[in-house]
Write a protein that binds this DNA or RNA. Structure first.
Length: 226
DNA sequence: AACTGGTTCAACCGCGTCTGA
DNA sequence: ATCAGACGCGGTTGAACCAGT
């Protein structure tokens, strides 16, 4: 004995939305809002749809400023870092990406990003972020309960912050016998982390740090401090 | 051109949580 | 404190599309 369905399936239309239905829903919501009840909205708007279906269509497709597809590398890194910290909390992750919906982020993760993660350096980079940069995510993933509390904006690390150490992939043959580092190899190999840092506004500081280490010919695989 | 297998993504489902009576 | 209805979420499905043969 399951729970009662939210509406009579035999009396509502299902499947893809027509342009006419989209137009009807958009016009109604823009004029009246959701009026506090999605369940009663279809009847008021003159739609033969389930309220939940209307809500989903509006949130994922019709509401203003929605972006579809074309995820940037910066968005990739934010998704990765948050996924490693809080898991499949798609709505929380989407809230950090303006114009993205939880459904979009979830689909993107399941169809593309997961595969990408399995095949390149991003895994190591995300793991590094997880262990070394977690203090700079200004929330506690364990105490962040299923709720409407908005996630605070990401913050810049303090001046004396300890940056992530280079990933394990920065081992020979990229490191020379005397401890110096092949610049090109380093940058190529470290690029995933570099991009992650860029995403969190560390770009300039970290760039200077790389330049410094390269100029000084110091081993770059040691930890970074300001 | 026709078929097949893989991919994408909009939409659905059902459960947990919230809220108001 | 309890309950029922509504909401919001993550997991899953399946039709449409694409690429390869």
């Amino acid at each position: 004995m399951g729970r009662a369905p939210c509406c009579d399936k035999s009396k509502v239309k299902r499947g893809p939305w027509s342009p006419q239905e989209d137009s009807t829903l958009r016009d109604y919501v823009e004029k009246h809002g959701t009026a506090g009840s999605w369940i009663s909205l279809p009847q008021k708007a003159g739609l033969k749809r389930c309220g939940k279906s209307c809500r989903l269509r509006w949130l994922n497709y019709l509401r203003p400023n929605i972006k579809h597809g074309g995820f940037t590398h910066q968005e990739d890194t934010i998704i990765l870092a948050l996924y490693h910290n809080i898991g499949s909390r798609w709505s929380v992750i989407a809230s950090q990406l303006p114009g993205r919906t939880d459904n979009d982020v979830k689909n993107y993760w399941n169809t593309k990003l997961k595969k990408k993660l399995a095949t390149n350096h991003l895994a190591a980079a995300a793991a590094t972020i997880n262990s070394n940069m977690l203090p700079y995510f200004p929330f506690d993933a364990n105490s962040y309960q299923h709720s409407q509390i908005p996630l605070p904006a990401l913050v810049e690390a303090p001046e004396n912050a300890l940056l992530p150490s280079a990933p394990a992939t920065l081992s020979p043959p990229f490191i020379n016998a005397d401890g110096s580092c092949e610049e090109d190899a380093f940058l190529l190999d470290f690029m995933p982390n570099y991009d992650l840092l860029d995403a969190f506004d560390f770009h300039d500081k970290f760039n200077h740090q790389i330049d410094y280490h390269l100029q000084q010919e110091q081993p770059i695989y040691q930890s970074f401090t300001y």
